[in-house]
Design a protein around this nucleic acid. Structure first.
Lengths: 342, 342
DNA sequence: GGGGTGAATGTTAGCGCTAACAATGTTGCT
DNA sequence: AGCAACATTGTTAGCGCTAACATTCACCCC
């Protein structure tokens, strides 16, 4: 008896040791109700004695379920995406699913569909795609869709279940905050044009300005990175016109802060600056940055929740209007914003 | 003919359409040499016509290979770990492996072994464990080790293949840089005591000081986060003793920079500050931070390389001295360090 | 006491694939 | 021509599991 050498134990080994059929072992493993408590205990201890572990491939082959969710992520060096991924991972594990992750260098339609193809090789049951660009979301909707897909940060994706942070609301919140402080208008350093998050934040900013009857300056587009914020910030500092600046993310805000500081523009005395994301560093910028926080973990959780609903839904029908879940943004007030100079 | 409805096509369907046996289809799929070009083309087009995709579970069942590598990561909200994960992911995909990731909230021995257990359910072929704490590495060495494990950032793990950045060298580099600028000694804000990276950086710092015959102040331990750097920085500013400060990561350096600035200590005129990590933000700190860069992607690549060697090594013997790969650190000079005040 | 009921267990048949072997056809060489 | 060697294809068995059905047994009720 004891532990067989040479190969790892299979169900039949456990069955033999426990003096039952392999099917009874299977029943114990799957929590089937009609097994005598005494039998169950015998099987259980045989499992432990042998260190038996069920072969997931064999199981998947017959159940036609792998329990694997494919995730297409990108650019996990940024705070937001990394946090979202982490939220997805925890939620998935809590529900007993495994995650297979592909991270993309470039966020294009082709790269995404290639990644999904790669994941399909592994028989994932469904996908979560972090889709921050319009082109990606549209490409996603075109896909043959053999398996459920949930888009995260997919803006107002028309035909796809989506979870996202309320970017428009966040942009509105930020702008409104500055207008409430008495600024005549608010300039905006935006993200790249094709990013949905950038679009949403612009929309919220514009709405707040229009609602208040304030002039709407042209938004200035950066590339999310500190350097672009620095460049645009330097330009604004030179023009000496803006008194309030809404920057579409904290990294660019950092660059802008630095450019302003270097040219002798005081923040917040001369210019108020507000960011977006609330990265851990922003509390310690010079000066500490007022910003808009997003609950990325919640986005991940809801994304997984939505996908699992789709996977386990017994009715095979796709609902007319795909589910849509919007997580609110939150204003975090620190030092970089102050009443307009008189 | 055409696409069968109701179920996805299997190898037999392709075989029928192409007029061959299913085994020939298998041979084409596996790139077996002895298949006539014409047959291969016929099979290929049948595959495309049906949209056939090989069932990975069935394949894994018979080959006993899942092609899945389990990754135990933690705290992917920090720059370094997130970057490392990304490097691992790209390298794995390039070699045709899939990644199943578990991220941990707490880095304890138990959490790691639980995570590995979870991954074992999915029949991963091997593990990459990001093991930044001594306890974790030791726990890893105790594991039954049914499958290969590679530790990343595991310091000088005794009995385990390890890939890590040369933390000692990096600490030495940073300290040496400050000593070369004429500072009498260098104070150190270290990471938490049980972190291997913190230990390594301390060791390098200490070696550089001792080598130069400089006094060795007590290292002050933070928790990697900006706030702790701020607290310790404020304390140092009050003491007015240090002229050179080596901070174990950029986030704490940011906090220290802020504390110094608030108390009127000028950087680098009064105090030089050097960080570690070279996060994207550090170039735009006030002032731009001199720091030590780590090539995380390279770490990920080497980690996967090592593991795959282990997986595909035909000899089953574990080498006497496990492989060990050390990636050098690199000094990035910016504005926050300057010659000692006279 | 007999038959119906349901709980507990066993037996059998695949899931879709690859490995091993068997059976062809094809070539080159004596 | 005839045979060996090899290239090409087909046939069969089985990986380890679960679903479906079959069997056994205890129990209950009229």
């Amino acid at each position: 008896m004891s532990v067989p050498v040479g190969r790892s134990p299979v169900m039949a080994d456990v069955a033999r040791l426990a003096g039952v059929s392999h099917q009874t072992v299977s029943r114990v493993l799957n929590g089937h109700p009609n097994v005598r408590a005494e039998t169950q205990a015998r099987v259980q201890s045989a499992i432990e004695e042998l260190g038996y572990r069920r072969n997931s491939s064999a199981r998947a082959l017959v159940t036609r379920r792998t329990g694997v969710i494919g995730v297409v992520a990108f650019d996990t060096t940024h705070y937001g995406p990394a946090q979202t991924l982490s939220g997805i991972e925890h939620a998935a594990r809590a529900d007993g699913y495994f995650l297979s992750v592909v991270t993309l260098q470039t966020v294009t339609r082709e790269a995404v569909s290639e990644a999904m193809d790669y994941l399909a090789q592994q028989s994932v049951e469904g996908y979560i795609v972090i889709a921050p660009k319009r082109a990606v979301v549209e490409g996603l909707a075109d896909q043959p869709a053999e398996r459920p897909v949930v888009a995260v940060e997919g803006g107002e994706a028309p035909d796809l279940p989506v979870v996202c942070v309320d970017q428009v609301g966040g942009g509105y919140l930020a702008t409104r905050h500055l207008l409430d402080l008495g600024h005549r208008t608010v300039h905006h350093i935006a993200g790249p044009g094709d990013w949905l998050e950038a679009e949403g934040r612009i929309a919220g900013w514009r709405r707040a300005l229009e609602e208040a009857g304030a002039p709407v300056p042209d938004p200035l587009h950066g590339d999310w990175r500190p350097r672009s914020g620095y460049r645009i910030g330097a330009q604004l500092a030179e023009e000496r016109e803006a008194t309030a600046l809404f920057v579409a993310n904290d990294q660019m805000a950092l660059g802008a802060l630095r450019a302003l500081g270097e040219t002798g523009v005081r923040v917040p005395d001369d210019v108020s600056v507000i960011g977006f994301d609330d990265i851990p560093e922003s509390e310690f910028f010079t000066p500490p940055l007022t910003t808009v926080a997003q609950d990325f973990s919640e986005v991940g959780r809801r994304g997984i929740g939505l996908l699992i609903d789709l996977l386990e839904d017994p009715t095979d029908t796709v609902p007319m209007t795909p589910a849509r879940s919007v997580v609110p943004a939150r204003l975090v007030t620190r030092v970089s914003t102050a009443p307009a100079p008189v």
